[in-house]
Design a protein around this nucleic acid. Structure first.
Lengths: 337, 337
DNA sequence: ATGAAAGCGCTAACAT
DNA sequence: ATGTTAGCGCTTTCAT
């Protein structure tokens, strides 16, 4: 078993306290003793037991992160951001995934709580999580929500300005001269709706007329996003008047749409412009490099991490409640450069 | 602060011990008391402090995972596998990433050790990690290496049978009738070399002649894998005699190669077959669906997790040392179905 | 059937 | 400058 304070103390014929004091930089220790202790600590490779301390202080220097999955780049990117900032402060990250199963989510949270985590960052895809209201009532303050503002609404959260995602993409295509911009929209969720609204807002803000038949709902079939994008585009191309710009809810869908266009002989970006969302390096650097809206997942993770740290620091608990990250457009050849 | 055993005890005019016994299912408690306790526990939403127990038992029910990054699908997939199996046993996962920085890796390990993790799973891309030898000497047994067998070599590890990756892909193309199979090889690392060897072995096993000029080294330039695949393929196509099959080190490279082929008017799979490695859903379901070797990352994670659990269980510590996972070929249209 | 004591590793507060 | 005491939340052991 690992070396304890007492081992060092016995070894040096000192008391545990002396060792402890040296290690915590107390000054009431003779230089000589200090040196001897430090030396022995190194030799024995002593590593303090933080848990023992946590029992006293109530601080575990641990942050929990609960998310649906690590497989989605967007989410693992967030996780990286969190890990980065909390590590810098000596905190450690507990990760739990719950394939969108609310029960699992709850169990994970309980496991984290039983480990006395200082804060929990929750990326829940559930539309509601009632269990939080009841279960967690006492220490609610140390929860940080990501992506979805919880119902109770007075909570701490970090999210992406979703409407801006649609707006920024559409705005860009308009600036590039597009007049008929198709939107391959996402699912009928809060996020899906917000992005669609952003698209629509850009249209009207710039004096174009909104044409409902240019908004394509691709959901419902069991196909991959790529296939759905491909098929939706193929159909669009059969119409009498083609769009001169296409925005897709994800990069995969955009890739599918672009391939359908290329296959049909459409010149990109000469005749038609494309934009996706996600700025996924893998997808955006292929065939005609794809202009895409960066969802700033890493930044979101960092902010969530910082918020968690603030909540974990006794004094500062009351700090800023919410934080909306603005997406960024990344221009590539599919919109002319 | 959270509810403690003592709170329940005081509340019910019982001793801590009685509560503890009820919760641990001891039988020497009257049915009535038991019911009262259970009821109150629920009402007060008591969650046991596992850390307190850990201080006594030395078991924290925590496994640490150190990896270069969560951004790579291969790695996050492994993380998911680990999380899954250890959660089932009530363990919790500490995750630390270290962008291939050995110093960070060491610091992470120390942080984990100071939290008394029961085991650490280490996915190190370092070729050597001397610091382990020294620092961790005492509890070396609770380390599980993934992907790379450590120098000390008597360690516990889980890895992919890398040579089999190259062999299986090449074997498949040969079965499909290919005679001239190009290999877009990966970096000059242990793994890169093993896969190349597998390719070569399949060639000679099946009585074809190995042609060095069909092995293309794409590394060195700062380009993306896709671009490297694309360029390598474009060059291949300029030769007098074209290959009739192409294997790439990653799916991205395969995608690039395939696009170069398609652009040049090559019919896939009629005239040329393609296979990648990684079985990345995003990439494999695009344009001509790509046959790819699945690297079984999830399975690797699960095995590593199980190994970590075994090491964490006092009795079983000496169990199986190493475990090699066999990759699986996933056939798609790019090789004729 | 219920409870008291001791101790896991550590440190704040107080002696010496 | 060094050491003693007590206690963080819990359970194992041994009373009652």
């Amino acid at each position: 078993m690992p070396v304890r304070l007492k081992d060092i103390a016995d070894d040096l014929n000192l008391s545990k306290m002396t060792i402890s004091k040296v290690l915590s930089g107390q000054t009431d220790i003779s230089a000589e003793t200090k040196a001897r202790v430090l030396q022995r600590v190194k030799e024995l490779k002593y590593i303090p037991n933080i848990n023992a301390n946590s029992l006293r202080t109530g601080q575990t220097m641990t942050v929990g992160l609960i998310l649906p999955s690590l497989r989605e780049v967007h989410l693992s990117e967030i996780a990286e951001g969190v890990a980065e900032v909390i590590r810098a402060d000596g905190y450690v990250l507990l990760v739990g995934n719950n394939g969108n199963d609310p029960e699992l989510e709850q169990r994970q949270l309980e496991m984290f709580l039983s480990r006395q985590v200082d804060a929990v960052i929750l990326i829940s895809t559930q539309e509601t999580n009632e269990f939080l209201e009841q279960m967690n009532a006492p220490r609610k303050t140390n929860l940080v929500f990501v992506n979805r503002k919880p119902p109770g609404s007075s909570e701490h959260f970090v999210g992406l300005h979703e409407e801006e995602v649609g707006r920024i993409a559409c705005e860009h295509l308009i600036s590039c001269g597009c007049k008929r911009i198709a939107y391959l929209r996402g699912p009928r969720t809060a996020i899906g709706d917000l992005r669609a609204r952003g698209y629509r807002r850009a249209i009207s803000d710039r004096g174009l007329t909104f044409q409902p038949n240019l908004v394509i709902d691709t959901m419902g079939t069991g196909e991959t996003e790529y296939r759905r994008g491909f098929r939706a585009m193929a159909k669009l191309l059969e119409r009498r008047s083609r769009p001169d710009g296409v925005i897709a809810y994800t990069d995969s869908m955009a890739a599918g749409a672009m391939d359908a266009g290329l296959r049909a002989g459409v010149k990109i970006p000469a005749e038609m412009l494309f934009a996706g969302c996600g700025n996924d390096t893998l997808l955006c650097d292929m065939r005609v490099p794809l202009t895409s809206v960066d969802l700033c997942s890493h930044e979101i993770g960092q902010r969530a991490g910082r918020m968690a740290l603030r909540l974990s620091t006794p004094g500062k608990s009351a700090a800023g409640r919410g934080s909306l990250v603005k997406p960024k457009l990344v221009r590539r050849l599919s919109t002319g450069l």
